[in-house]
């Protein structure tokens, strides 16, 4: 494992912990998109299906369990926790899951590395992860009032994606037979979606003002 991959995973872990910490300690999910969180739970459920049959390393298994556990806990908190769920703004978080789910499923059935159940689901999870942040970005733009933790959460997620791209470049030049076009294209699109957010995040950080996205 190279340093970019490790840093990417740790940033991903940090993003999830920041969000869980916010929800657990402040008992509020204001500004958090349940739609995005449900999509991530589905991303992990479909991608880590191999957890029972395909042992890569102790590290991989633990990380998979953490991402599965944390994503389902976050969804549980927002839907079921008696205090947290009151802060969920359903009327602002209106993005339709199906608009993302269906195209990803169709695309995974058509464009994949191998047409097997496991591989199609894996590919579906890649496509879905690429766009799963959209409901959250739309919500941020709508509410405009972004608290620090939510801003940090999205920033860390974007940083994780950017580090994964560096990891792929590194692996491409250091490993033989390391070519995964589908992963790379989906991952690059995913990272580009954060471009706008990054711009405003850095602006607010540089000028030391509250993060606000333009309407």
């Amino acid at each position: 494992m190279n340093i970019f991959r490790l840093a990417g995973d740790m940033t991903h872990l940090a993003s999830v912990l920041v969000l869980l910490l916010k929800i657990h300690t402040i008992k509020s999910c204001a500004g958090v998109s349940l739609k995005t969180q449900e999509l991530y739970a589905l991303v992990f459920a479909t991608r880590y299906l191999d957890i029972f049959f395909n042992f890569v390393s102790f590290y991989n298994t633990i990380m998979k369990l953490i991402f599965l556990g944390s994503s389902f806990s976050i969804v549980w908190y927002i839907r079921r926790h008696r205090i947290v769920r009151r802060s969920y703004d359903k009327d602002q978080d209106t993005f339709r899951h199906l608009f993302l789910l269906l195209p990803c499923l169709l695309l995974a059935l058509v464009i994949n590395e191998r047409f097997t159940f496991k591989e199609v689901l894996w590919t579906f999870s890649l496509y879905l992860e690429a766009v799963a942040i959209l409901p959250q970005l739309v919500l941020l733009q709508r509410t405009r009032n972004i608290d620090n933790l939510t801003g940090q959460y999205v920033f860390l997620l974007g940083a994780y994606r950017a580090l994964y791209i560096l990891n792929w470049i590194y692996r491409y030049f250091t490993e033989e037979h390391y070519v995964h076009w589908i992963t790379w294209i989906a991952g690059t699109i995913q990272t580009l979606l954060y471009g706008d957010f990054f711009y405003y995040y850095f602006q607010s950080w540089k000028n030391n003002v509250r993060l606000e996205l333009p309407a």
């Binding site: 191999d50 890569v56 990380m63 998979k64 991402f67 994964y164 990891n167 037979h177």
Partner: peptide, 10 residues
């Protein structure tokens, strides 16, 4: 020297 089965990234 074929590619190993499965995916090793998260």
């Amino acid at each position: 020297d074929s590619e190993p089965e499965g995916h090793d990234e998260l």
